[in-house]
Design a protein around this nucleic acid. Structure first.
Length: 184
DNA sequence: CTCCGGATCC
DNA sequence: GGATCTGGAG
C-alpha cells in the first residue's frame, strides 16, 4: 500500500484491509473482486492484484517451497509479484531483520543530499549508485540495519523532506554536503 | 521510459 | 497548477 502513496493516506485502508484479510491464507482464499473492493479508493490497483497473486503463490502454488510463509532473503522476495527492490529490502530488513539495504523515495533523497548531491534519483543509472551507497553505509548486523534503515526513512519523512527541508534540526547536518545554514 | 490514482503540500 | 508521496510492471 505504501508504494508511491503517503503513510497518512494508507493508515485507514491498512486497518480495514487487515481486518478483512488478517493473514496470507485468508487473502489467498478470497476472490480477486473482494480484494479490489477493499482497495477501492486507494488507487494503483495493480498493487492489489499483485498482492492477491502473491498470497496465492505463497500459500497454494508453491506451498512446498515457501510453506505458506514469505521468504526472508531480498532475492527470493524480489521474485514475488509486486515486490521490487525496495519492498524486498524493506521486508527483509524490517520484518526479518536481515542485513538488507533499502532505497525508497525518502532514502534516495537523504543519501543524495548527504553524499552525492549531483545524482538524479529519477535516472536508473543514478538510482543504482544510490543503492551502492546505501549498502556501503549499512551496519554489519541485521539488527543494527533495522534501526539504521528506520532512521534514514524517518530523516527523509520528517527532516530532510522534499519541499521544505529543515537542515537546522538535522542530526547529520555537519557531515551533509547539501546542508543549509551557517554551519557547514 | 511510460503508466498507474488520488490526496495533499506549496 | 505542479510536485510529491516508504514503486513496480509492461
Amino acid at each position: 500500500m505504501l508504494q508511491q502513496t503517503q503513510v497518512s493516506r494508507v493508515l485507514d485502508f491498512y486497518e480495514r484491509f487487515l481486518s478483512r484479510f488478517p493473514d496470507l491464507k485468508s487473502l489467498a482464499s478470497a476472490r480477486e473482486g473482494a480484494v479490489l473492493a477493499q482497495w477501492r479508493g486507494l488507487g494503483y490497483y495493480a498493487r492489489a492484484r499483485n498482492l492477491h497473486k502473491l498470497a496465492r503463490r505463497v500459500v497454494r502454488e508453491e506451498a512446498a517451497v515457501y510453506g505458506g510463509v514469505l521468504p526472508t532473503s531480498p532475492r527470493e522476495l524480489r521474485a514475488l509479484p509486486g515486490v521490487g527492490a525496495y519492498t524486498a529490502g524493506a521486508v527483509a530488513s524490517f520484518a526479518y531483520e536481515q542485513r538488507a539495504a533499502l532505497v525508497d523515495t525518502n532514502v534516495a533523497r537523504v543519501l543524495k543530499r548527504c553524499f552525492a548531491p549531483a545524482l538524479h534519483p529519477k535516472r536508473a543509472r543514478d538510482l543504482a549508485r544510490l543503492w551502492l551507497i546505501a549498502d556501503a553505509v549499512l551496519p554489519r548486523s541485521g539488527r543494527a540495519g533495522w534501526t539504521h534503515n528506520q532512521a534514514l526513512m524517518e530523516l527523509g519523512a520528517l527532516v530532510c523532506t522534499a519541499r521544505v527541508k529543515h537542515c537546522g534540526k538535522c542530526p547529520v547536518r555537519t557531515l551533509c554536503r547539501s546542508a543549509d545554514g551557517e554551519l557547514g
